[in-house]
Design a protein around this nucleic acid. Structure first.
Lengths: 188, 188
DNA sequence: CGCGCGATTGAGTAATTTCAAATCTAGTGG
DNA sequence: CCACTAGATTTGAAATTACTCAATCGCGCG
C-alpha cells in the first residue's frame, strides 16, 4: 500500500523490511475529500503529513480577503504549517485539498521518538529539511530577479502536470500576480 | 574564544566540555577582510560557515548586471551556498564580506562525520534546517502579501542594527526594490 | 577646497492592478 | 441532443505603482 513511501525514504537511507514496518507504525493513514481542510488558520497543528495521493494548497487570506498560495503539495511531498507544528503555535495558514487526498500523518512527539529510535530517520529528515530550504531559496530568487513570464515558464517546465490539476487562478496566486495578468501572459 | 558557538549549539542540545572540544575540532577558524569573497559564483563550495563576528551578504548578479541580495548573515548565523555545498555543484551566487568577518568553517565530509560521531549534532542540524525553512517561508509570504513599506518596517523592527551596518541600497536590494523606491518610502 | 560616495528628488515610462464586462467550457436536466 | 447555468478564463480601459535615467544634495576625508 505505502510502497511509494518506502521508496521515498530509501532515496536517502536504506531500510530492512522490519525497519520499514516499524517506521510505518509511527504514522497513521488518513483520507480527505476535495475541499476539506487539513490545517486551519488559528487552530493548533499537531500533525505533519506525507502525501500518498492527491493535491493540496497552503495559503493565507490577506487583509483584503484575497488568497495567497504559499505552496502546492502533491504525491511524495511533506506538508504542514511547520511554524505551528514545531513551536506548537496556532496555524498561520490554511491547507486544503484541491483533490481528494490520501496521506500519512505523524505527530511532533512521534516524530521525535521515531528519530530517537532510528538515527537514520533523523538524518533523513535533516536531508529533507535542507532540500526544502534550498528549494525555498530558489523561489525567493525567482521572485527577485525574474519577471512574471519567466517564473510562469519555469513553473510550467518543472511541474507540467500541475497545470492540468489546478485552475489558472491558483497558479496566478502562487506566482504572486493577479489572474488577469497571468491570462495576458499565456497569449504571447 | 568560541564561547558564542557553544552557547549557540547548547540552545538546542546540551554538551559536556569534552564533547564540545571534540566537536570544535571538526571546524577550522578563518578570518576574512571587508570586501573579500567567501563564496564565488561558478566556483566549487566545499565549506559551510558559522559567523562568529562580522556581516556578509549573499547575492547573485542578474542579466542586467544588478545585484540581488538573497540574504544577509551576521553573528550566530550559518551560511553558505547550500545547493552547491550539498550537491557539490558550482556556486550559483556570491557571498562577500560587508565587514571584516571571523568564522568557523566545516567541509561537507566533516559535517557528515560529525553527525555520525554525535547523533545529537544531526538533531541540532535538523532543527536548524527546519527553522531556516520556516524563516524562508515567512519571507516568501512577505513578498506575496505585503507591500514594500510593510516589508521595510518589518525588517527594521526585526533587525534594527542591520540598518546601521549596511548602506540603504543593500537593504533595497534585499527587499527587492530599487534604491529610489526605498528612499521615497522612508520619507513618509 | 573639492572629490566621491551614498542618498534624495523629479519627470517620464513601463508594468501591474482593479473593476467591469464579455466569452468560453463542462456538466446537468429536460 | 440541446438549452442552461456556474465556474473559469479572457479582454478592455483607467488608475496605481514602481522603474529608469538624470540631476541634485549632503557629508566625510584627504
Amino acid at each position: 500500500m505505502s510502497l511509494l513511501f518506502r521508496q521515498h525514504i530509501e532515496q536517502i537511507i536504506s531500510l530492512t523490511d522490519d525497519e520499514y514496518t516499524e517506521i510505518l507504525s509511527y504514522f497513521k493513514p488518513k483520507t480527505y475529500k476535495k475541499h476539506q481542510f487539513i490545517v486551519q488558520q488559528e487552530e493548533p497543528v499537531s500533525q505533519e503529513y506525507f502525501i500518498l495521493k492527491g493535491l493540496v494548497k497552503s495559503y493565507i487570506t490577506g487583509d483584503d480577503g484575497k488568497e495567497h498560495i504559499i505552496q502546492f503539495a502533491m504525491e511524495n511531498w511533506w506538508v504542514t504549517d511547520y511554524q505551528a507544528y514545531v513551536n506548537k503555535e496556532p496555524a498561520t495558514y490554511n491547507i486544503d485539498c484541491v483533490e481528494a487526498t490520501e496521506l500519512l500523518s505523524i505527530t511532533s512527539e512521534q516524530k521525535t521518538l521515531l528519530c530517537q529510535r532510528f538515527h537514520k530517520m533523523e538524518h533523513f529528515f535533516r536531508v529533507k529539511a535542507t532540500s526544502g530550504y534550498i528549494a525555498l531559496q530558489k523561489r525567493i530568487l525567482s521572485f527577485m530577479h525574474q519577471d512574471t513570464e519567466q517564473r510562469y515558464r519555469q513553473l510550467f517546465e518543472q511541474y507540467p502536470t500541475l497545470f492540468q490539476r489546478v485552475p489558472k487562478a491558483m497558479i496566478a496566486s502562487y506566482l504572486g500576480v493577479s489572474r488577469e495578468t497571468l491570462s495576458r501572459l499565456s497569449v504571447k
